[in-house]
């Protein structure tokens, strides 16, 4: 996975936006919303990791 191409604007809570991830995927055969939600939930863990490295540790 490369870095997201469109850095601006990336919202707080996001490392790699869903819109960028979507471009990687071919046709989605199932429920797109499930994939989106789980992607964003997992992505937010990466966000929390780096910001807590900065703020808390």
């Amino acid at each position: 996975m490369d870095e997201p191409k469109n850095h601006i604007p990336i919202k707080p809570g996001v490392c790699f936006p869903w819109e960028e991830k979507l471009r990687e995927l071919n046709e989605i055969k199932g429920d797109k919303e499930i994939i989106k939600k789980v992607w964003e939930d997992a992505d937010s863990l990466g966000y929390i990791y780096i910001w807590h490295c900065l703020l808390s540790f």
Partner: peptide, 16 residues
């Protein structure tokens, strides 16, 4: 300024 999160991962973390 462009993307603080990417800066932290790509520039800051490797230095700290």
């Amino acid at each position: 300024i462009k993307d603080p999160t990417a800066f932290l991962f790509n520039i800051w973390l490797p230095r700290v």
